[in-house]
Write a protein that binds this DNA or RNA. Sequence first.
DNA 1: TATAATCCTATCGGTTTACTAGGTTTTAAG
DNA 2: CTTAAAACCTAGTAAACCGATAGGATTATA
Lengths: 138, 138
Amino acid sequence: MLSKKTKYGIKALAYIARKKDRNPVQASEISESENISQKFLESIMLELRKSGFLGSKKGKGGGYYLIKEPQEIKMTAVIRVLEGPIAMVPCVSLNYYEKCDDCPDENTCSVHKLMIQVRDASLNVLGENTLEDIAITQ
Amino acid sequence: MLSKKTKYGIKALAYIARKKDRNPVQASEISESENISQKFLESIMLELRKSGFLGSKKGKGGGYYLIKEPQEIKMTAVIRVLEGPIAMVPCVSLNYYEKCDDCPDENTCSVHKLMIQVRDASLNVLGENTLEDIAITQ
DNA sequence: TATAATCCTATCGGTTTACTAGGTTTTAAG
DNA sequence: CTTAAAACCTAGTAAACCGATAGGATTATA
């Protein structure tokens, strides 16, 4: 299950991407428009800034803006930063690999083989979708 | 992320499916062979029995056995029973649908559209794999 | 100087997870 | 008939995680 953090983060990025002008967007505006708790959203925006998706401007008239173009931001990258691994089991994760405690041999593990297929299917979808793709209205 | 419960449950089913004879298999045997806490496994086996995947025989020489043939058990069914929804967001779940609190309109929600694609990709993999497919050794 | 915004740290109640404990009941074998 | 082995059942629990909230500190603009 996707956490609310990730869900809100994606919505916020999409909201910013949808704006034609590239002026900074306030968290308060997004929070209102997308029905997200403002304080919670603030922490998410901070994380998106620290991980290089957003830039920010403090003070009056400040806000957040995209650092890269929407079509350059793959959804895999966004989800990995906010949610963590895309794989359903650490032992098939490309970016967050961890060995299982049980399981002496991954190559003969039935779960392992299945989850590699699921991972690849998900990676395929998330890698082909950019922020531009999902930000489209209608 | 897949819970240990689901992971162990799949491993147990695969273990039973791998046996040629159809004699009941004890939880203790699976627990030892697959490195799963026995008591925890017991509760999982119980759930798999109550949901119609396994039959059981009490007393000495008892154990668990498959009710259907391995090739008739889709992994979608197993995961839905043990883990719950396959979708990453309730609002795109086929079997566990729930509306989002935020989100006035699903049709214009960027997360929604993306997660439908991910769901379909996962369903595709999990629906095409049966217990027989994943139980194969080597 | 006032205001509006981000930034930061801490906390907290609730839920879920992965077990563990301690039995009861049923069955087969001796 | 007794004993052991198995499933069955209920309860509890420590730890982690989640979704937020609180309360300010900092910075920039007008």
